[in-house]
Design a protein around this nucleic acid. Structure first.
Lengths: 202, 202
DNA sequence: GACTGTTTGGCAGCGACTGCCAATTTGCGT
DNA sequence: ACGCAAATTGGCAGTCGCTGCCAAACAGTC
């Protein structure tokens, strides 16, 4: 677990790291394949471990949760979101700031197809949606202070308003990505996002 | 399981029904007590069953899921929501329709204190929040057709917009109830809801 | 080649949840 | 009041995600 100095780019120095990366990839690919083939709930950890050629115990050491096997580790989303927004100048309004953050997150996906695959899985599996929404809530908490300072504290509870605004942005993102999936990945999600937001804000 | 004709109000005719109701209440009260005493995740089904004086198997026959033990069965919320909105005249706009539905749902709670207790539990327990959000998603799907017909199909995907609007309403409800809990139940949730919506729709 | 630290696999166990079967309880007809 | 059928219950074993623990296999260093 020692984050040894490995030459920033290129193959990692040690055999351990190389093996780790290989195993990680093998597990991830096996998992995604099985998930799309037979569904998330219908795929057991035992099966993934067997087909990836590792023990269950090792699999859980690489990925602490079954959800983590979806790849495109969603925890980074929160990071990128908060980083992007906190680097914005103070004059930028809440809505524009959130839009910028959302765009940055959407830009993280490798390929359109992989994104489509993941989103499809996400929107078709109840347990996954729930997990995703829970993560959203955590992002929401992280975003709260960054948004609060950008809002005019005119009347009432600033916290409530900020929460509502953030949650609305996420709601639009979800609605947009859901529609995107329904359209088999036609168009850009960010355009759908704008459309949704326009519908909400009249 | 035969839904025998029991005089609509008053004690149910058969002993079975009476016993069932008693057991149900006993389990529910025990569960809520333990949840608030030691937390949701820290309370095991085995403990609830033991203290309620039934077997685990029977407990699961009364309530299919641990979440169902929260009481105030949330599945009714969806019912009330869709019923309320579908009974509204066609001229009523989407936002007013949704507000009416939300108000109807909020009116379902027995007492302010019980509601506060449940909301507090909900907002402080990650797994519960996830479950609640998942139910919200189901409500959202049910509401979709009712909202779509109330929207002007000017441009773009009506589905996306309707979804966004509904999700925004839920987002405001969540933000409102969260703030309500933070304020220890001071004021009316529906007022906070209006405040949140105002913040979003500018 | 021996020593040290890392990684791995297996096993037992927990908690939510389900299917199955036998035992108990309740309702009803005679 | 008795007995049969239906409803209800409890117990047991098993699944699945997930964790702690311990011994074995392994990479890296001297």
């Amino acid at each position: 677990m020692k984050q040894e100095a490995e030459t920033a780019r290129g193959a990692p120095a040690t055999l351990w790291d190389r093996t780790r990366r290989l195993a990680s990839r093998e597990i991830l690919e096996t998992a995604l394949r099985l998930f799309t083939e037979q569904g998330y709930d219908e795929t057991t950890i035992a099966q993934i471990a067997r087909e990836a050629g590792v023990s269950q115990r090792t699999l859980f050491r690489y990925f602490g949760t079954k959800e983590d096997l979806l790849g495109g580790n969603q925890d980074r989303f929160g990071q990128v979101l908060t980083d992007t927004i906190s680097e914005l100048p103070a004059e930028v309004g809440v809505w524009e700031a959130l839009r910028t953050g959302v765009a940055a997150v959407l830009a993280l996906h490798d390929s359109r197809e992989q994104a489509l695959e993941r989103f499809r899985l996400l929107h078709n599996t109840a347990s996954l949606r729930a997990g995703w929404l829970e993560k959203q809530l955590r992002f929401q908490e992280d975003l709260l202070p960054l948004i609060e300072v950008r809002m005019d504290a005119a009347t009432g509870s600033v916290g409530a308003k900020a929460r509502a605004v953030i949650a609305t942005a996420f709601a639009c993102l979800d609605a947009a990505s859901m529609t995107w999936v329904d359209n088999d990945g036609k168009g850009d999600i960010i355009d759908l996002y704008d459309e949704c937001l326009a519908a909400v804000r009249g």
